[in-house]
């Protein structure tokens, strides 16, 4: 049976081998596992031939990731639960899968062309390896480069994050359907990065709740390092309602 490799990049960080197809794996992670999981699960499929000395178990996958005695496929075999993203090169990542808490899974393919390069201000939810909610004067691609620049005192080797909606009404308040924590504080932080005094980023919340997360996603998800940025464009509302109706039915309810 074919062995897949998945990098879980939200909620927790892990590299997992599995005999399940991605949709089935997402369902298992949300509702099938005995390891009680809450909130959303995001994972990226990894090139099956990927190998790295950091993950010696990968060389023995055929031995360890095998069917159960009763014939059931092996749902998960943990390869690593620490510093996973750091050692996975950008070209090893394939499609992104977003699983709702009740097990609906949406596949998001990476954009083929240039990564989205728009200016800020922006609101980002970092998902892996850290989880702060951040406002920035930068656009998503620029932010990815900034946060993975080693010359930056605060940087990470590789970063996975989501670009969130930041609509404001005529009076400058956040749109009513955005369920971010402490809207007033968020706007204050936004004011600071928009002021032009050189502050490029500001953390709004360290580890906010994922309630209403999928309803807040704007342009999509980004995976970046010093060498480049991959963009996973989030489908439009129309596409979600028509082509992914059940996923959106679940995602929009959480």
């Amino acid at each position: 049976m074919r062995i897949h490799l998945y990098a879980v990049v939200s909620g927790f960080e892990a590299l997992i081998a599995s005999q399940l197809e991605p949709e089935a794996f997402g369902l298992h992670m949300a509702v099938g596992t005995r390891k009680l999981t809450s909130g959303i699960i995001s994972f990226l499929e990894i090139e099956p031939s990927f190998r790295h000395e950091r993950f010696p178990l990968l060389d023995r996958l055929e031995e360890v990731c095998v069917l159960h005695p009763d014939g059931r496929p092996r749902a998960s075999k943990y390869v690593s639960v620490y510093r996973v993203l750091e050692f996975l090169p950008l070209d090893a990542f394939r499609d992104l899968y977003l699983a709702t808490p009740d097990g609906r899974v949406l596949r998001v393919a990476p954009s083929e062309g240039r990564p989205l390069d728009v200016a800020g201000p922006s609101l980002f939810q970092e998902l892996c390896p850290l989880t702060p909610l951040v406002v920035s004067a930068l656009g998503p691609a620029e932010y990815a480069r900034h946060m993975t620049d080693e010359s930056n005192p605060i940087s990470v080797p590789r970063l996975f994050f989501a670009d969130l909606r930041l609509e404001r009404d005529a009076e400058g308040r956040l749109a009513g359907d955005l369920s971010y924590p402490s809207p007033a504080h968020l706007l204050e932080c936004l004011g600071q990065v928009e002021s032009g005094r050189g502050k490029l980023t500001k953390t709004v919340a360290r580890n906010p709740s994922t309630q209403g997360f999928f309803r807040s996603v704007r342009r999509g998800f980004f995976l970046g390092d010093a060498g480049g940025v991959k963009w996973y464009p989030f489908p439009s509302r129309e596409q979600l309602e028509v082509h992914h109706a059940w996923w959106w039915h679940s995602a929009s309810a959480h």
Binding site: G176, L178, S179, G212
Partner: peptide, 13 residues
């Protein structure tokens, strides 16, 4: 739920 006070998922909700 129609989009006030944070909408669905907010503490108000």
């Amino acid at each position: 739920e129609d989009g006030h006070y944070g909408g669905k998922g907010s503490d108000a909700h």
